[in-house]
Design a protein around this nucleic acid. Sequence first.
DNA 1: TAAAATATCCTCTTTTTCAGGGATTGGAAG
DNA 2: CTTCCAATCCCTGAAAAAGAGGATATTTTA
Lengths: 206, 206
Amino acid sequence: MKTKVYIVDDHFMVIEGLKAILQSNSEIDLMGYAYNAETCLSFLKQQQPDVILLDINLPDVSGIELCKEISIKYPAIHILGLSTFNQLSYISKMLENGAMGYLLKNASKQEMLTAINTVMKGKKYLSPEASETIKKPSNKDTPILTRRELEVLQLIAEGLTNAEMASKLFVSATTVDTHRKHLLEKFNAKNTAALVKLATQMKFVE
Amino acid sequence: MKTKVYIVDDHFMVIEGLKAILQSNSEIDLMGYAYNAETCLSFLKQQQPDVILLDINLPDVSGIELCKEISIKYPAIHILGLSTFNQLSYISKMLENGAMGYLLKNASKQEMLTAINTVMKGKKYLSPEASETIKKPSNKDTPILTRRELEVLQLIAEGLTNAEMASKLFVSATTVDTHRKHLLEKFNAKNTAALVKLATQMKFVE
DNA sequence: TAAAATATCCTCTTTTTCAGGGATTGGAAG
DNA sequence: CTTCCAATCCCTGAAAAAGAGGATATTTTA
């Protein structure tokens, strides 16, 4: 029984590369491909592959959302995330949203086949080169903020000073300062710059 | 006479895609490919292609630097930059450094061949989808930083003070302060907090 | 070669943040 | 009912950054 594979990626070159790689393997039946989420979803209404190779960046919907949708509607499909090295931060999001593993776009042919086989067995496949890097953000504990702290944090990131925040939030500047201190403590940040970096990475600000 | 083409890209899948596309065309002689700048440069010592398809992101040297080096050492070679949509800001740098054009990685087969033929005639080829975007002022919001500015920016985001950066970079604190001012100007940021938010979002810091 | 960009260094003033404290109120959880 | 937490407010002094002027030397580029 061949493994039915479907590709979702908006880069023509990547699609062609994957086609060339996968079609040369007798174990794999490449069902088709999509350049965007919409095409993918209408295809899935007709047929379901065993494995979907899913890029993170898509023109219409983010790959993360599509991942979620697919894994809810079609739990039998195994999703393998595709990413480049500098998109590593998004991969953990995909794993939370039902992906069974991920591959880097510089993966070798052998790695690709291993990944497909692994997820077909119901196991997770994590690209070895990146799986360490990805563990780091997961263990860095995201602090629990109060409503007010989050507000202040976002205004800090906007570039407001304590006085400006104070008038905006109708409190005194010292209050804002206190929230600020608590934020520095909770994030274990040395100063505002480090705080904002962490907060932005942890998606507290957008 | 066939057009001799060489590929430089660190993504296996993209290489395979390009191979599949280019090898199916009788006008093109695919000489080989490299995953990094070093391999590329040693290949060029032996033979020179007519056209190089050159990715912006390489593991060892940035594609922009490699572009410069190639166009100085081998002025006869026509360089076509390869990029994804979110790397548009770097494309103009490549054009300044000797590239004859650029292609997006979601380009069609036809577009690729057109691009190769165009640069072979000595004309510039700019991907139509992106050439507008690159001209628009909306793109100017990602500032171009100098080496030193980027260094300082990243250290700021780490939470270092001017004095700390000064000793780390072996310059005086006032120098660091000047770089800092330039960063605030270039990002049009009101203060460090706003700067770090923008820089983190724009992936200047990891 | 002249102009622009880059990197370096300087002073001075004002504003903002950081790091210690401490205190009151209201509400939720035990 | 008491204890904990969130949100509010205040003080002081030191440290850091912002803002506004400069200057100089070296590359790079047009």
